[in-house]
Design a protein around this nucleic acid. Sequence first.
DNA 1: ACCTGAACACCGTTCAAGT
DNA 2: ACCTGAACACCGTTCAAGT
Lengths: 255, 255
Amino acid sequence: MTVARQPNNRRSKPGGPKTAPRARRPRDSLSQETILAAAEEIALRDGLHALTFQAIGDALGAHPTSLYRHFRDKDELVLELVDGLRARSYGGTVTATDDWRADMRTISQRVREHYVRYAPFAQEMVMRTTRRPVEFANVEFTLDALRRAGLDDDEVVVMQRALGNFVRSVASLEAATLALEPDVRRRDELAWQVEYRQLDPETYPTIAELADRLPSLGAPEAFDVGLELMLDAIEMRAARSRARRGESVEHPGDE
Amino acid sequence: MTVARQPNNRRSKPGGPKTAPRARRPRDSLSQETILAAAEEIALRDGLHALTFQAIGDALGAHPTSLYRHFRDKDELVLELVDGLRARSYGGTVTATDDWRADMRTISQRVREHYVRYAPFAQEMVMRTTRRPVEFANVEFTLDALRRAGLDDDEVVVMQRALGNFVRSVASLEAATLALEPDVRRRDELAWQVEYRQLDPETYPTIAELADRLPSLGAPEAFDVGLELMLDAIEMRAARSRARRGESVEHPGDE
DNA sequence: ACCTGAACACCGTTCAAGT
DNA sequence: ACCTGAACACCGTTCAAGT
């Protein structure tokens, strides 16, 4: 919200000295692709708040309003951008192995890497369904893996949602902390290393004992540990479902 | 991003007809509390995007810029608001029982209800450490519960982070989908009920089979199921840790 | 048809002026 | 000291005008 002030070097300011009209861009030199490429670079370099039509226009040497010929509004531009990133990032379909846990790890880490890589868009990505091939492929892959784990179909659909939401939202949280203003982020991280150690041991006895080891909010272990917990629990349920169906069970809960 | 246009009924527009000066607010009638109360009402009624100094000023019959005497900038106002909500929502400390799982459920659902209730702030809340008593109390409570579960201290700190991040981020996702523009939300939910059923069974065989039962993105089961999975897995690990320490184990993995 | 320029209705924020 | 008014530097967006 606190925006750094910049000198106004916009051309043709209301009463200012007349400057030469901007160089005219050649016809048809603008397209969705060129615009999206410029937009991506700006957002990844300077953050989502810096992604304005003005900035994109400047980067392309084009008038800000010329973008309206290629996108209905900014929302459409951002959604299109997000979708393009997704297609590129984990477009190559993951092929299933005979180990469903390994498969779930692979696809989950892929989603996570994508969020971290495109951190400025994490919040935008996490809650929108894109309904594109990449999303379909991910859902298909996960449903199949959970079936191979041995879950009943009833369990499969609900576990897919539970696991999928876990992966996307925890990845998004990790990414969002990365995209935080550097000084805010440093202050927040410091809190877990400093402030928590100085709390009164009377009121917070357990914190006082463990303060030296508390990981900060964006700590990457949170994802890996959480994922393994989920997979452990799913494996356990799958073993029960298998047993219920009268199938042979091989070492439930062991690794 | 697509903002509805409204007629300009701002007073004293640049060249417009002179209107009577605004009624002057009595001295000291403004305070952090009155401002925050008005801000909360606006955000909860019309969403975060509608929370502007202009809107708060209108609600209070005060000049927008008068708020700057009480808050450094908008960021500070929002953070203060978020912190106040938190203190009020689950300020009453949860008291531990002899059942760590029940305790973890209680505190997790409390956090979740808070996110859903204050959905417009979910994204803002999820990634910021507030370093206030309520947060400290939650951490203390969770660390203690995980210890009582039987985890080693090394495990306790990392599980606290994994579980805490799970709860906050999945709750935030649920809340964020609730706070989505109604028509966007409806379209997204519909996708899971309609579009997924129409996919080609050749390329997406598992989806085709299970499409009737796929829950949508913001489905509330995702939280409950995920939480039970996490608790199951933690219970299993705790049993192992107990055994490693030579303590008696009582039915690990059963409910 | 595609791009530009001017204009409009907003934002957050600063600062001098009123009471 | 606290509130108001005017102004500044931005936003997204529309629309008539240029080429």
